[in-house]
Write a protein that binds this DNA or RNA. Structure first.
Length: 428
DNA sequence: GTCCAGGCTT
DNA sequence: AAGCCTGGAC
C-alpha cells in the first residue's frame, strides 16, 4: 500500500491536491468516506451473492476470480445462472484447466466478449501451474495480473475479496461514484483521468477491510449511484458529493463522444444435407465470436457510419431510402472473410450454386439486426440444400484447410456447441 | 426501435 | 486507440 505522501506523486497534475483543497476540512471528507460507505453496506448492501467470500475466514480465490471475470462488462443478474453452471461443471480451477475448450465455450455461450472465456481457460492452466509450483494461488497483485484476462481492477478485487489481503478496485462503478463525489470533469477514457481516479480510489480504500470496501463500492454503483436516476436521498456520501451539490449527478462520468457506427451486411448460410443437418464452422480465435461456432457468413457490404453533420438534402434521401442501400456520403469498404468462408464461397462459385432466401412468409424477409460495439450487423439467413456427393466435397475441402467443422441440426447445435446470440436468433 | 455500459488485450 | 458482445434503460 503506497503511503499518502506517495499518492501525490502518482497524480500527474495537482488532482488530489485540488480535491483536498475543495473541502475546508478535506481530511474529514476523505477519511470518513470509507466508514460511511461501510456502515451503509452493512445495513443495505447485498450479502447473499453466491461468490461473496467476506463472511468466511477461508476465502476461495477460484470463486472470486471466476466471478470477477464473468462480471467484467456483465451485470450480476446475467452472470448468476452462468456462474452456477460453471461451478457445477468445474468446481475447482483444476477441473476448469483440464476441460476441453469446446466445453468451456459451450458454458460461456451467450455471455458475450468471448475473449474472456479464452483467457479464463488459459488462466486456469496458468493458475494450476502456479499452484503446482508454489502450493497455492498467487498471493500478490503482480502474480494475479500475470494471469490472462486479469487486469489491474480484477487483480485488486481478487486480492481484497478472494485472499482477504489489501486490494484496490477501480472499475466502472467506482469511476462513476468517484467522478460524481469529487466532480471530476476529465474524460474517463483518457489515461490521465484513469490515473487520477486510481489515486483517489487508493487514497479512499481502508487498509483494513479493503474487501468489504470493494464490495460496498460496487454495490453503491450498482444500486444507488446508478447511471440514470441515482438515489441520492439514500446515499451515505450525499453530504459532500460535489456533483449532487451542483445538481449535476448525471453529467458524470464524462466520456468522449461516440463515433458513428458503420453497418455491415452479411448472408448467414444454412448449408444443409437432406436430413436437415447444418454446416457449422468454428471461428478463428481473433475477431468476432473468437473460438465459437457460427454459420458460414457471406460478406455483402459495409457502409460507413452516418455522419453527424448531414445536410437537409442528404437527410431527405435517407428517409426516402427504405431499402438499406448506400447513400451518397457513405463509403464502401473491402470485403471481410475468414479462410473457411473463402473456401466455401469459392466452392459455391465453382459449382454455380446460390443460396436462397429463407422466409416463412413473403413479408418475413427482413435481416436480423445485431448491434455490436463498433458496428451494426444485418444478417440475412440464406438456405442451400446439398446432395451427399456435394456434402463430401465441401467437407473435404474444409478439413484439408484444418478448419473445425460440424454437421448438426438446429436443436443439436444449440445444445452442444457454443453458439453466440446472433446464431440463436437466426435459428429461431 | 436506439443508446449505452463495461475491463482487458493487442 | 481500437476491438470485442449482450442486455437493460428509455
Amino acid at each position: 500500500m503506497p503511503q499518502i505522501d506517495d499518492m501525490t506523486q502518482l497524480t500527474p497534475t495537482a488532482n488530489l491536491t485540488t480535491i483536498e483543497n475543495t473541502f475546508t476540512q478535506y481530511s474529514t471528507s476523505l477519511d470518513s468516506f470509507a466508514p460511511r460507505l461501510l456502515d451503509w453496506f452493512a445495513e443495505n448492501g447485498r450479502h447473499d451473492l453466491p461468490w461473496q467470500q467476506h463472511q468466511t475466514d477461508a476465502p476461495n480465490p477460484y470463486i472470486v476470480w471466476l466471478s470477477e471475470v464473468m462480471l467484467q462488462q456483465t451485470q450480476v443478474t446475467t452472470v448468476l445462472p452462468y456462474f452456477a453452471r460453471f461451478m457445477a461443471s468445474f468446481p475447482t480451477v483444476q477441473d476448469l484447466a483440464a476441460a476441453k475448450w469446446d466445453k468451456v465455450a459451450e458454458h460461456w455461450a451467450g455471455l458475450g466478449y468471448y475473449a474472456r472465456a479464452r483467457n479464463l481457460h488459459k488462466g486456469a492452466k496458468q493458475l494450476v501451474e502456479v499452484i503446482d509450483e508454489t502450493g497455492d494461488f498467487p498471493q500478490t497483485l503482480a502474480g494475479w495480473e500475470a494471469i490472462s484476462g486479469v487486469g489491474p481492477s480484477t487483480a485488486g478485487a481478487i486480492m481484497a475479496m478472494g485472499l482477504h489481503r489489501y486490494g484496490v478496485i477501480c472499475d466502472g462503478n467506482v469511476k462513476r461514484v468517484l467522478t460524481r463525489w469529487a466532480a471530476i470533469d476529465g474524460d474517463i477514457t483518457k489515461s490521465a483521468t484513469t490515473k487520477e481516479l486510481w489515486a483517489l480510489a487508493e487514497r479512499l480504500t481502508p487498509i483494513e477491510n479493503s474487501g468489504l470496501f470493494a464490495q460496498a463500492m460496487m454495490d453503491m454503483g450498482a444500486t444507488l449511484c446508478t447511471r440514470s436516476k441515482p438515489a441520492c436521498l439514500l446515499c451515505p456520501l450525499q453530504e459532500d458529493c460535489l456533483a449532487h451539490e451542483q445538481g449535476r449527478e448525471t453529467d458524470y462520468p464524462v466520456k468522449a463522444k461516440k463515433q458513428p457506427k458503420p453497418s455491415k451486411f452479411s448472408n448467414a448460410l444454412l448449408i444443409e444435407d437432406i436430413d436437415g443437418k447444418i454446416l457449422w464452422l468454428q471461428r478463428p480465435d481473433n475477431g468476432i465470436w473468437g473460438g465459437l461456432w457460427s454459420l458460414p457468413l457471406q460478406f455483402v457490404e459495409k457502409i460507413a457510419g452516418k455522419m453527424n453533420t448531414k445536410t437537409a438534402a442528404e437527410k431527405t434521401t435517407e428517409i426516402d431510402d427504405t431499402s438499406l442501400k448506400v447513400t451518397s456520403n457513405e463509403k464502401v469498404y473491402e470485403a471481410e472473410f475468414t479462410t473457411a468462408e473463402q473456401i466455401i464461397n469459392e466452392w459455391l462459385d465453382k459449382h454455380k450454386l446460390t443460396a436462397k432466401a429463407v422466409s416463412k412468409t413473403l413479408l418475413d424477409d427482413a435481416p436480423i439486426k445485431h448491434s455490436l460495439t463498433h458496428f451494426h450487423w444485418y444478417l440475412t439467413p440464406q438456405s442451400l440444400i446439398l446432395n451427399a456427393e456435394q456434402i463430401t466435397e465441401i467437407t473435404e475441402a474444409l478439413e484439408a484447410a484444418q478448419i473445425n467443422i460440424n454437421w448438426l441440426n438446429a436443436v443439436d447445435a444449440q445444445a452442444t456447441l457454443g453458439l453466440p446470440r446472433a446464431m440463436v436468433k437466426i435459428l429461431e
